[in-house]
Design a protein around this nucleic acid. Structure first.
Lengths: 207, 207, 207, 207
DNA sequence: AATGAATGAGCCTTCATTCAT
DNA sequence: GATGAATGAAGGCTCATTCAT
């Protein structure tokens, strides 16, 4: 079946297919058969290459884009406020853009609902740095006047606004059928979240 | 097997058990057997009383508390800002309190991730009124200066901040093991979200 | 639920409903619930009144019509040929007529395919006399020239032609969608079977 | 478990076992578990190889023998009467011979009682050609003097006589316990049906 | 190295039946 | 006497996984 692809390429196709299927159905809802079918691989390929469905998830989780986003954000020479704007925009594009290259990370949010062994890896390698990065931005914006709990809650408020669009997608589609997250809508939404959050943080600073 | 419960109470025990198991594992992850085991009922009991697993979900979803919350909020004589504070506090208590009486609504958030036939009912009967209620509050607070899209995004920003603590629970437990959502922590969190949101809305109003 | 019917009438309604459902789906395909639903009786009614599904079948089998048919045929003063004609016509009407009064016997043919404990009763009480009756007619028509095996085969040939329309109904509907067994078609069919069989028997006689 | 059979042969064993079990219990009465048990295969094997119980039935139905019978009959150089004799004999051998090779077709008659999705296939691919073949023989024998309805009824009369022995088997065993359908009895029965039918057709012709 | 076949545990559901009232 | 609730065995089927090749 695998005439066209060298050995190692099956592995890559499996990971790519897994990202698709995990994104669409979540970890529990995804089936190994469907992943293998899309990867044009044998049913046994997942267990052969990754040991188990869990192992495949662990491999499929790739935080390069998230890391690259943070690195780019750190490298930006703008002020903290501007960097928060950029970060929210990039994060929203990653979460909502139909572009397949970014879909790989959308799994993360999904899996948060039903812990799997892979969740430790996600939390450690991707989400902790994200929280730290945002915490630093919040500190910069508020002038370091917040204690740990307050800073943490501000980070949660920003993240919550962003991830809401991902978690709530099925419901939002039902309540607002005309709502489509094309590029311009995503950018407008990101701008709103940035405005909303910066206004709140500014109030905190002056308080 | 049914020594303890008078007839007809099995049905109630099944609903209560279903709320527990659906909350813990989601709809797909929950099994009829586990629900029946916890309800001390036969495997066939679910199908006898509710026709199917789907039917049980539909029954288990009970929006009384959510509706009562909105009704109480509408009846409050306070100003819009104060009513938003109250609403956020009640909503957070409902989402996070370990009190089993409120657990019934926690399923809702879970189901948003993987649409089931029951999602239509949830969206229509519970979430749409919630959005409308918050939209009215936002309008009252901002003096009706926002257009539809802006108001909607503000509602999403408020809801996103709240539901984040529910969706993100497994991850938050890992990143901040010392964090416990006891009553006082929930109230402090609700106060933060209210402060954060009201500050942002105030900025919108003056803008 | 049973306000209208006195105790004993539930039993009768169950038997009538059983005849309907058994006729439509066979013994295995019929469900106790469906029978009770049609009889407007409780699920437990079947076991209460008849001990089991099998017991209900045994009761539902009522050969009165078949016996009456044979009695009437015996009483007829016509010649044997004419009595065979009449018998075939009555038998075909019983098998194919949509008239509910005769449906009660259609179960018999159904059950022949999948032996149940009730089959012994059917064979003994209804089918054996039928075979004997037809055997006597065949003897009368052929002048008693046939040995046991030959007479038996002639009876089988006649019965086979008749029951074919019952057993083969689902297939015939597919192959000849325009074919409808209304009264006139049934009579024409019965006439054909009688002609066909009498011609064959006449040839036997002269042979 | 599969020590005895080389790979790929499980599929064949399943089909063979299915023919046995379907023959004995009908489609509804047969269980996948019993089929797998007899085939010495896993419960999941049926769904793996055939997708479903229905799929297995569709595969198990193999009309090769029936088609071969018709082809051989067409190729025969004898007169129409002789070819009808041969056909009836072959058909009866197929229906009644305990030889397992022919058992595959006995399911057909059984399924006629309770339509399944496979019945369409049976009717189209196996029974329609059978009816046409017999219709042509009847025409040849009667000199084409019959109209459509008459020819059809003659075909039904012939088929009914044959299938009676199959459908009625359980009852016949009870009424005539000494009757055994060994080869010679089958041939004698076939001869009777041919005699009976040819005599009737001859009468039609001259009429 | 890689696969098609096969596995067995477990899923939701259906059913005739039983039991407490 | 009669019922609604409850039972447990069994049904078809799905799935991640394993095994022989």
């Amino acid at each position: 079946m695998n005439d066209a692809g060298c050995a190692e390429q099956t592995r890559e196709r499996l990971i790519e297919a897994a990202r698709e299927v995990f994104s669409e159905h979540g970890f529990q809802g995804a089936t190994v058969r469907e992943i293998c079918r899309r990867a044009d691989a044998n049913v046994a390929a997942v267990n052969y290459h990754f040991g188990s469905k869990d192992g495949l998830l662990a491999e499929a989780l790739n935080f390069n884009q998230l890391k690259a986003m943070q690195a780019a954000n750190l490298a930006a020479t703008s002020c903290a406020e501007q960097r928060l704007r950029l970060f929210i925009r990039d994060f929203m594009l990653m979460l909502l853009d139909e572009n397949s290259a970014s879909r790989q990370c959308r799994m993360m949010a999904r899996e948060l609902a039903d812990p799997t062994p892979a969740l430790d890896k996600i939390a450690r390698e991707a989400i902790a740095p994200l929280h730290e990065h945002l915490g630093a931005l919040v500190d910069a914006i508020t002038g370091g006047t917040l204690d740990d709990a307050e800073r943490r809650r501000c980070v949660f408020s920003i993240l919550g606004q962003c991830t809401f669009y991902y978690h709530g997608e099925p419901v939002l589609q039902r309540l607002y059928p005309e709502l489509r997250f094309r590029r311009d809508e995503i950018e407008a939404t990101a701008a709103h979240i940035a405005d909303f959050s910066l206004a709140a943080l500014a109030a905190r600073k002056s308080a």
